[in-house]
């Protein structure tokens, strides 16, 4: 659970990044933050893991303040928060596997990570994370040999290797083509549902926000101007978030925002259901591809309703699978110490 309490951020040059933000994001939610460039999307996202230090207010992660955490405590808390960046941020000269293992460094003493002495359980985790993004066969390839979309999937795998409770994605598809964008967004959404990881994504494309979000938060000049389920985010709402700029950029309300035109080639079967009916306000129950309730999928009353049932016992893996995940998917990626199923 992420809680913003009267958060305000003023940059040294006087720019107001966030202004009186109060926000609660429940466990397992898939939240998309939309807004113009400079509206404060990145500031909001980066204040969650304190890549940005806020000026006023407090941010609680599962009830603990990350704002007041000391250096060691901060590193502990960051370990549970994975992050995906617009520019992938891989060490391009290193192998894919070593890049994914970078997600494990916070679990070990520095010298072990630097010498690359990861326990076998970590290797299993890394391979499992790669399998989840469909890149296990690229493990020993140098990262700069991969395409942009593949690199972004490696960076998702790196975040997953952290076994995070929260996944932050800062414009994860802004430098990718439309087809690859779909692959990445589907990966994020599938991981959110399969593993119940709370996911917060910054996007600036209205169409994408509509298709993938469960809940949309609109930012304008550092203030939250909209917060609600995707069904409630009408054209008028977007027009409000984006202001006149949207209209002058040739966007027509109700014009369908070219949602249906994506080629099916690279689409993952898991989320076919979600991508087929994008812009329409479909009841959540119809959109669930998997039977049974899971934390991510069951968020029927996403915004107002209480967070999903039965929070896991403390110390349990963030990678526990929600009940009701299709039986064909073996429960792998438990805590690093435990057995893990390799493909």
């Amino acid at each position: 659970m992420i809680e913003f309490q009267n958060v305000r951020k003023v940059y040294p040059n006087g720019t107001v990044g966030l202004d009186g933000v109060n926000l609660t994001i429940g466990r397992g939610e898939f939240v998309v933050i939309v807004g113009l460039s400079g509206a404060g999307k990145s500031t909001l996202l980066r204040s969650i893991n304190r890549l940005v230090d806020i000026t006023e207010g407090d941010i609680l992660i599962d009830g603990r303040s990350i704002v007041q955490a000391g250096p060691k405590e901060l590193r502990r808390m960051r370990r549970d928060i994975g992050m995906v960046f617009q520019s992938f941020n891989l060490v391009r000269r290193m192998s894919v596997l070593r890049n994914v293992l970078a997600g494990r460094v916070a679990y070990h003493p520095a010298w072990r990570s630097i010498l690359g002495l990861f326990p076998e359980a970590d290797l299993r985790l890394a391979f499992d994370a790669l399998r989840r993004v469909g890149l296990e066969d690229k493990a020993f390839v140098r990262a700069d040999q991969l395409s942009g979309g593949q690199q972004q999937r490696v960076s998702i795998a790196r975040a997953l290797a952290q076994q995070p409770k929260i996944l932050l994605a800062d414009e994860p598809v802004a430098s990718l083509d439309p087809v690859t964008t779909d692959v990445i967004m589907n990966d994020l959404k599938r991981i959110n549902r399969e593993l119940g990881i709370t996911t917060v994504v910054n996007l600036h494309v209205v169409d994408l926000a509509r298709r993938f979000a469960d809940r949309i938060i609109g930012l304008k000049a550092g203030r939250i101007v909209f917060d609600g389920p995707v069904e409630a985010a009408t054209d008028d709402v977007f027009a409000e978030i984006y202001g006149r700029e949207l209209a002058s950029a040739g966007w027509t309300p109700g014009g369908g925002t070219k949602a249906e035109g994506t080629p099916a080639a690279d689409r993952r079967p898991e989320f076919g259901a979600a991508t087929e009916a994008p812009a329409k306000a479909v009841p959540a129950t119809d959109r669930k591809p998997d039977p049974g309730p899971g934390p991510g999928a069951s968020a029927g009353g996403r915004l107002a309703a209480a967070p999903p049932p039965a929070p896991p016992a403390p110390g349990m893996s963030a990678f526990r699978l929600p009940d009701g995940v299709p039986a064909g998917d073996p429960p792998v990626m438990e805590r690093s110490g435990e057995r893990s199923v390799l493909p």
Binding site: N49, L51, L74, R75, R76, M77, R78, R79, I81, G82, M83, F85, S87, F88, N89, L90, V91, R92, A102, G103, V105, A106, A110, W111, S113, I114, S155, R158, A159, Q162
Partner: peptide, 21 residues
């Protein structure tokens, strides 16, 4: 490229790790 440093930092790495990794 400062990107990888940022990514490691965000994941809870300490300074020596940023340096070596």
């Amino acid at each position: 490229d400062p990107g990888p440093l940022e990514a490691l930092w965000a994941g809870g790495a300490s300074r020596p790790v940023l340096f070596g990794y």
